[in-house]
Design a protein around this nucleic acid. Structure first.
Lengths: 235, 235
DNA sequence: GCTTGGTGTAACGCCATTGTCACAATCCGT
DNA sequence: ACGGATTGTGACAATGGCGTTACACCAAGC
């Protein structure tokens, strides 16, 4: 949920205020004092979202937004406009230029982070929306349910994510470190052995349907989901 | 995927803005500046979807929607309402009149096309008759009434909209953020936990008919409406 | 005015979930 | 068979998610 956010704002006081609040909300703000500077930074590394002031010296905010939206590489980055007053014309041209939302000054820090959250959640569409089924084991991300041979399986959140990852990446070995990255998140710090415990819990839950064999351990390497019971199928 | 979309909007600037964005998204927009003009065009050729402004000179948007929904030939055309403000009453009467979705101005082009895609995707399996009944729980948007096993259920406005959303999107988990988007509106900002309280109120109201189990919580994910009592079961 | 119904927020407490550890069991090369 | 390395297993404390209640606020109605 934390995101890198590019703040394009020429007034230092507001710039500071915004970035500070973003930091407090757990985000990673980047500062740009002009549209030109912002363009450089965008070309360097894509941010997750852009907070764009309406009135800027040199290139205006609208022009900047237009430039971004006409570039295939940058057009997908959501933009939130900051405007001095809720002016109708501003609103229309801003949205026309491709802004996803706008905030009228003065705004509360709370509204700021709320809008960001709203836009980002709106912008991230479904990842794996389809149902996965392997050897009678069925997992549905949409309804968030798992069954083995028609019988319901009760899983904790982490076990669910773990199984989801395995079922979308079957027949492939993953180290504990890789699993921590993919299932827990690349930023958390937990012991490698924690994976073992969750693997066991997952197997336990799957055992009632006889599907515990699906999660196989590859000694000194990691774990793997496979339909074949054989511990080693070479070539 | 490309569709002919009738845009009913009296203000030329917004009309232009919307049709332009629709064209960019690969659709074929048709313009109508009044409900009367739109009626003619609909009778001439059925569009795949209608974007309908709430406030129109002459015949209002609601009236227009009602006319469409009472005609067998035109009732199946999905309607997305455009309203100037996120007014609770507007939303309710809009849904009563048969609108399939609802966008509050100002809206981003991205949101616009996203909603259109969403409505067109989900329009095939459901709709047609807008009375929803699940496991004896019956909700009628037209009369704005809810009954469990024939007995009336008293709900507040928010609880009603919440239940309406769940019953039109059953067997699917929604995060608190998504629920806030869909039920409260994509631009309002309230705490996530507020959803919990309304979920409880809804359950409380449904409990008298024994239907409280319908609203199920998926820990660390969100909520879901399901007919099966089991916390986890598929199909 | 006062009252009332609806809504959002804060606070409290319970309990499922989780990360970690200690120890037993197993594997594999020597 | 032995020993070290690796993994399975059970238990434990701490965390955090969620149900629940209470309360303040606001708009509408009498």
């Amino acid at each position: 949920m934390p995101a890198t956010i590019l703040v394009v704002e020429d007034e230092p006081a507001i710039q500071e205020l915004v970035t500070c609040n973003l930091r407090l909300a757990g985000h990673h703000p980047l500062s740009a004092l002009s549209a030109e500077e912002a363009l450089d930074m965008v070309n360097n590394a894509l941010p997750d979202l852009i907070l764009l002031d309406w009135l800027l010296p040199g290139m205006s905010g609208v022009e900047f937004a237009r430039r971004l939206k006409t570039n295939h590489y940058t057009r997908s980055v959501p933009i939130i406009m900051l405007t001095a007053r809720a002016d109708e014309n501003d609103k229309i041209t801003g949205l026309e230029a491709g802004a996803d939302d706008y905030i009228a000054k003065p705004f509360s820090p709370r509204e700021l982070v709320a809008r960001i959250k709203a836009v980002m959640r709106r912008n991230t569409p479904e990842t794996t929306d389809y149902r996965v089924e392997i050897a009678g084991l069925c997992l549905d991300p949409v309804s968030h349910r798992v069954t083995t041979a028609g019988q319901p399986v009760e899983l904790g959140p982490t076990e669910f994510r773990l199984l989801l990852f395995f079922m979308t990446h079957p027949e492939r070995v993953y180290s504990r470190a890789q699993l921590l990255d993919q299932v827990w998140g690349s930023h958390v710090f937990v012991e490698d052995r924690t994976v073992d415990v969750h693997i066991r819990r997952l197997r336990l839950a799957l055992a009632t349907g006889g599907h515990d064999y699906l999660i196989q351990t590859v000694r000194s390497v990691g774990y793997r989901l496979s339909v074949s019971k054989a511990n080693d199928s070479l070539l």
